[in-house]
């Protein structure tokens, strides 16, 4: 069969959702941010929520998310997205509200805002991109940086005695009664993307039912920060990040997964 006969409108089975704009993503080649953006937008699209959704992206590589996500969006100060989301959701309880935050943002400068939004059980969804590093500012150590991992501010590797321990903030917030669904996912393979999408969709569905805060961590790569080509960085992530940040549901229906 000729390719020309296949490539026809009626045979289209997959293309980028219209909820992603046509702007070229500002991310480095192979960066998981793009995939994570797209699946969030696919879900908003599939659930018919575009006209009802407000997204909040604070400072980090994804600060320009509003250039790419075709929904109403608020750019927030570094770390403050959960507070901004609280302001929106409390005054518009029927809207769908989510934040999209990096690990420096969520687990360092914004720890207080994150924990308290979770603890209050704000009916919002937090998408947490954990790449173990500060991407935007050029690859400095993050709270999530693994032991021994080299970054521009831990050039000899993270020394736990001097620099503290990698923070599993997702396990931490899962302890709080305000969180209803907490999951850790990845987007490096087709299977991982499908799973992550299911988890994020579940999070948004729970938000519609006002059951509490839903939180999905996406363990992702930072090729530039890790100084690895994209495919190698995904391998490194599987070998090094996943043993420490184990994938899967952490809290389901308000109960910790044993």
């Amino acid at each position: 069969m000729d390719i020309k006969d296949i490539i026809k409108e009626e045979n289209l089975v997959y293309s980028k959702t219209k909820l992603m704009t046509d702007n070229v993503l500002s991310y480095c080649p192979g960066c998981g941010h793009g995939t994570a953006h797209r699946i969030v937008m696919e879900i908003i699209d599939e659930m018919g929520l575009q006209s009802n959704t407000i997204g909040i992206a604070p400072v980090g590589c994804s600060v320009l998310a509003y250039d790419f996500m075709n929904i109403d969006m608020i750019q927030a100060a570094h770390g403050r997205a959960p507070a901004v989301a609280t302001g929106v959701k409390r005054t518009w309880p029927d809207k769908t509200v989510f934040t999209y935050q990096g690990d420096g943002d969520l687990a360092a400068i914004g720890t207080a805002e994150t924990i308290h939004a979770c603890n209050r059980g704000e009916n919002i969804t937090i998408i947490f991109i954990n790449n173990g590093i500060y991407g935007m500012t050029g690859g400095q150590m993050a709270p999530t940086t693994l032991e021994g991992m080299k970054t521009s501010t831990s050039p000899h590797g993270r020394d736990l005695k001097k620099m503290g321990n990698p923070l599993k903030i997702t396990e931490l917030i899962a302890q709080l009664p305000g969180t209803y669904y907490v999951s850790r996912q990845a987007v490096h393979t087709p299977a991982a993307v499908r799973k992550a999408k299911k988890a994020i969709r579940k999070a948004f569905e729970i938000q519609q039912e006002n059951k509490g805060l839903t939180f999905v961590e996406v363990v992702s790569n930072c090729n530039s920060g890790w100084k690895l080509p994209p495919v190698k960085s995904n391998q490194w992530m599987v070998e090094n990040m996943f043993p420490f940040y184990q994938l899967g549901d952490i809290k389901v229906d308000g109960e910790l997964v044993k």
Partner: peptide, 10 residues
């Protein structure tokens, strides 16, 4: 898995 969403499939 394409981070930039540049692939369409038929």
């Amino acid at each position: 898995v394409c981070p930039d969403g540049v692939i369409s499939v038929y």
